[in-house]
């Protein structure tokens, strides 16, 4: 920690939350700097929401402490509430009210006067692109519109610190990217600190300046996306075999080029020592061994690899949804 801890908008020390025998958050030390977009990445059940609920005064820590905006979340809960904006994962938005009504209600709850509340509401509707739908009941909104309204609601009182719990889960790729843009704009314009949880490595990668990866209530890795990925080191070379029977000999042929990585049947992966410049050597090694291949993919390290190295498992959901190779060098047969 470079800065004085009290300077940082979010600081936790040994934060723990138990539910009976379960330790949902098992001793987390964090420090988020002013103006940062901090990504809290983890699979289902990792403890992300529990963490957010403690930091937003909805849940009392079982042990440790947390300061948000310099205020203790337990002893000074009201001061914390005044300085934060929150978009919770499961917080439905009252379907019977219109977007504009909810915004003015939220303004009142934060003690903003009527005219200012209305002005602020209109401004935010514009920002999140909901001006046209402002007079409609929220029950008629799409998932993406609800999330955008949720974001606007969290911003009514111009909080310095913003908590977003899985803001894009369930959104289609376009809406997801649109929401990323809004978060970015907001962060640059208002300088608000953003604490964002996600189970999508791509989201953390794209949006967050710094990331903590949480698994089973513990932080297993922390740093900028680039740092974390560079710790993985070499890119992964993935060979798609014509026949799974060649798997063992393919692995043997590639052994001197890099360490094997577990992969599905019909595929062999290694961490290619020396990176892209060694792809040709790998192809030659396979040819020399007489192995027929369907294709070759070179993939730069991802946060999923970081997670894999730290936990031995893959991020749930991301493997299925986001695992398209980012820098593929595919050669079709």
């Amino acid at each position: 920690m470079e800065r004085e801890p009290s300077d940082n908008p979010i600081v936790t020390e040994g934060l723990v939350r138990r539910f009976g025998a379960i330790e949902a958050v098992a001793g987390v030390d964090l420090s988020v700097g002013r103006g940062e977009i901090f990504g809290f990445l983890g699979p289902n059940g990792a403890g992300k929401s529990t963490m957010v609920r403690m930091l937003t005064t909805l849940l009392r820590p079982s042990a440790g402490r947390a300061l948000v905006g310099g205020h203790d979340v337990v002893r000074d809960a009201d001061a914390v509430r005044r300085s934060i904006g929150v978009a919770l994962q499961d917080a439905a938005i009252d379907p019977l009210m219109t977007g504009r009504e909810l915004l003015s209600l939220q303004a009142v709850l934060h003690g903003i006067d009527k005219t200012e509340g209305r002005r602020r509401g209109d401004e935010l509707l514009e920002t999140v692109g909901l001006t046209g739908a402002a007079g409609r009941r929220v029950g008629t909104y799409s998932g993406g519109m609800k999330r955008r309204l949720d974001l606007a609601l969290a911003l009514v009182h111009k909080p310095n610190i913003l908590f977003l719990d899985e803001p894009t889960t369930g959104l289609d790729p376009n809406s997801r990217i649109a929401l990323w843009d809004e978060v970015r704009v907001l962060n640059t314009h208002s300088g608000a600190t953003v604490f964002l949880t996600t189970q999508y490595m791509e989201e953390a990668d794209q949006l967050a300046g710094r990331i903590a990866i949480i698994d089973d209530g513990r932080i297993v890795a922390e740093g900028t996306p680039a740092e974390l990925k560079s710790r993985v080191g070499d890119p992964t070379l993935r060979v798609v075999l014509q026949s799974d029977q060649d798997a063992v000999s393919a692995e043997a042929a590639l052994l001197r080029l890099g360490e094997p990585v577990a992969d599905s049947p019909g595929h062999v992966s290694i961490r290619l020592a020396g990176g892209a410049s060694r792809v040709a050597a790998a192809a030659r090694a396979l040819e020399d061994a007489g192995i027929q291949i369907e294709g070759l993919e070179l993939r730069s390290p991802t946060l999923d690899d970081v997670f894999h190295i730290a936990t031995g498992r893959r991020l749930e959901g991301t493997a299925a949804e986001d695992a398209e190779p980012e820098e593929a060098e595919s050669s079709a047969p």
């Binding site: 909805l58 009201d78 509430r81 919770l88 917080a91 439905a92 939220q106 709850l109 934060h110």
Partner: peptide, 16 residues
């Protein structure tokens, strides 16, 4: 319903 939907949490997380 507010409690089930989480609107209650929204209120509780605000300084109201």
């Amino acid at each position: 319903t507010d409690i089930e939907d989480g609107f209650f949490d929204r209120l509780v997380a605000s300084p109201v």
